[in-house]
């Protein structure tokens, strides 16, 4: 099942050579194994994102290792140096093997 994910570039207009900020959010419960189910009283098994990979073109530019103590619906923000027109691909992997991918186009103007 693919999860909902969002990637936003700030500012929206940018030129070649600019350093922009990439904001990303994915919908994920991030259960850490300590929270109990309110109905049954049993702990919910751990289910959280462990790896995030960011590709710009085919180059791996950022790799994020994540632990269960990151908030639900994890938000990650980092910088990107724009020097070409290429797709920016983010891959989220969780501990149950679910993989979510999201691709946006980086289009420098001017």
């Amino acid at each position: 099942m693919a999860r909902t994910a969002l990637i936003k570039i700030k500012p929206r207009r940018y030129k070649k050579g600019d350093i922009v900020r990439v904001d990303s959010v994915i919908m994920h419960p991030m259960y850490n194994g300590l929270i109990k189910d309110k109905k049954t009283g049993k702990p919910i098994p751990p289910h959280y994102i462990t790896d995030v990979e960011v590709y710009y073109g085919d180059q791996l530019i950022t790799k994020i290792d994540v632990n269960a103590s990151v908030s639900a619906n994890p938000y990650f923000s980092f910088n990107l140096k724009v020097d070409k027109e290429a797709p920016l691909k983010m891959i989220w992997k969780d501990n149950k093997g679910e993989i979510t991918e999201k691709v946006i186009q980086i289009k420098p103007r001017g």
Binding site: Y56, I61, I64, F76, F78
Partner: peptide, 14 residues
């Protein structure tokens, strides 16, 4: 967060 020179600036938020 493992960064590379393509990131431009060392910055990370979560």
């Amino acid at each position: 967060a493992h960064l590379t020179p393509q990131n431009g600036k060392p910055y990370f938020a979560t």
